[in-house]
Nucleic acid binder design. Structure first.
Lengths: 326, 326
DNA sequence: TTGTACGCGTTATCAT
DNA sequence: ATGATAACGCGTACAA
């Protein structure tokens, strides 16, 4: 490994001078600068980030904690974060929490031990004191917390939109798949949908679900049609669940969207590829990731920030599991 | 931040002693050990990994470089790696390369600067000297290199399997979508398929593709049916391309699998959810990730290793885009 | 404009 | 069995 000392020796100057030219701090004569730069070139020197991090007590690393990168919603989010960070010379230590508080703790700990300068987390325990105690800027992504900066989609609006659209397109016996109670955005969506449905006096049922895994989603889809075979409109808690419902409806010989309309949530890449393609509420996942990155960077570099909560817009994407509006 | 000094002071011992109990190195009296442990507990001390890393010139970090986490094949891989590493107390610095050599270089550089102890990369330039020069263990994942450890699926076998199955199920005018030439596994698949096709004297055409993006895949799908409208069997280079072909076939009013059979490659989660569900060659992506992690860890901890190249098995998954075998 | 010397938090060596 | 201290590579007072 070639260190700053080697460069200093090669350039016949002190390490302090080398440091100054590297970091462009303090005065240094043009000639010596050149000598140093040449030495750097020749030796192929690059500063050791670990030593820097130790001295400055902060690194160029941030921690990213996601429930499960294998869930098709999260890669977009992750990519947005990565691109935003990459462009600003931050790197990412990445972990999957599986919505498991212990794993989450473990990662937060190693984030600290590695001097990360900030954390982006998609957690169901935003108010846990493990975050409160953290002396670092934290941005919650796809999750809301009363008193921490966060980036999230307008779930309530999304829920309302979905309900409005399914009504406008003629469903009169709606079933809402209520997402996991501990996941805030899922509840926002649910609430939004319920509001609209109640307001318009449309009859509706609720099926309670407790995860977003496809395997389980299949079970709830069966339960749904068991209990409410005549439902003519399903508001799913996300696209995975919607996909399972679609499968089950097709399996039962129902015509989608004629017999039953289905609207998902998230607009994961899968959705447009199904047949029939899934109508859904689009969340700008990639952009949300980028926003989170931007917000965290501002927090890191400026300490505080104007707009601590960024709510991203959602929109209805009309595809083939809904009928044409009247 | 609470340091080893604070603990030492609190326990009325020297930092050396604290270090000894923390790392369980050297003798220390049971009583003093207890004093130290109590102090650690009270102060909530955890060692600073950065300082450790500086002194030992190695961290508990590894670098993971993937083309694009947004491509549905990679999350499985990433998750496998992460789980394998996590269980052995290694953390991951993660980056997307976009198959772009410059980005790749950048990441490799920051990996080095952060004292990572190993790298897992899914790169198209495994023989680039940026890897050769690397003084670190590198494992190539889903990519082969003549002289570096790697974990990859048996692409040739997969290609052969796909061809054999499509023939056995009655296709006689087959089209192969040849994947990007610079991606080794894609070429292996292609080669395997060609071998079988030639051997059995079946007529076949080739459509050349140059990426795995869905947008472009749609174009090639159109090109495919433009040039070879009467093809009755398509061997796609991966499931994304297969999905596009399926869409186009359906759009043209073809009956799948009656008029045309389609076999994909990878078995991404999407595939089983399509209608008709996609028949494909399954790669054990998650397990490949885990294997790569295991291999790298062995390389890190033992320097060298028995089996430097791990070839994973593939298998045909029969779903609904192929007919029943005769 | 440049160099010396210390400190960042750890671990390991060498005394004691 | 324990402590003092050098070293890891870097950045910055402070002195020159």
């Amino acid at each position: 490994m070639v260190t700053i000392k080697d460069v200093a020796k090669q350039a016949c100057v002190s390490v302090a001078t080398v440091s100054r030219v590297i970091n462009e701090t303090g005065y240094v004569h043009a000639d010596t600068r050149k000598k140093v730069l040449d030495a750097v070139e020749q030796l192929n020197y690059t500063p050791n980030e670990v030593a820097r991090s130790l001295y400055k007590r902060k690194s160029k690393l941030i921690g990213l904690l996601l429930p499960d990168i294998t869930n098709p919603y999260f890669p977009q989010l992750a990519r947005g974060v990565e691109d935003g960070m990459q462009e600003n010379d931050f790197r990412i230590i990445f972990g999957n929490s599986d919505e498991n508080e212990r794993k989450e703790q473990e990662y937060i700990l190693t984030f600290i031990q590695n001097n990360v300068v900030g954390v982006i987390a998609s957690t169901n325990h935003p108010n846990s004191d493990m975050y409160a105690k953290l002396k670092l800027p934290v941005v919650f992504l796809d999750r809301t917390s009363s008193d921490s900066p966060s980036v999230y989609a307008d779930g309530r609006k999304g829920g309302r939109l979905a309900a409005e659209e399914i009504i406008a397109r003629g469903s009169r016996r709606v079933t809402i798949m209520q997402g996991p109670v501990h996941i805030r955005p899922a509840q926002d969506r649910f609430q939004g949908a319920v509001e609209v449905l109640k307001q318009s006096g449309i009859e509706f049922n609720v099926i309670q679900t407790s995860s977003f895994s496809f395997k389980e989603a299949e079970m709830w889809a069966k339960e749904l049609f068991n209990k409410h075979l005549d439902t003519d409109g399903v508001l799913a808690s996300n696209d995975i669940v919607a996909t399972a419902v679609l499968h089950e409806a097709l399996r039962l010989g129902k015509n989608v969207p004629h017999d039953v309309q289905i609207i998902g949530f998230d607009d994961i890449p899968l959705s447009s590829l199904l047949s029939p393609a899934l109508s859904t509420i689009h969340q700008p996942a990639y952009e949300m990731g980028r926003e989170a990155a931007g917000l965290l960077i501002r927090l890191i570099e400026q300490g505080k920030v104007e707009n601590r909560n960024i709510q991203m817009p959602v929109r209805f994407v009309e595809r083939d599991t809904t009928r044409k509006a009247d």
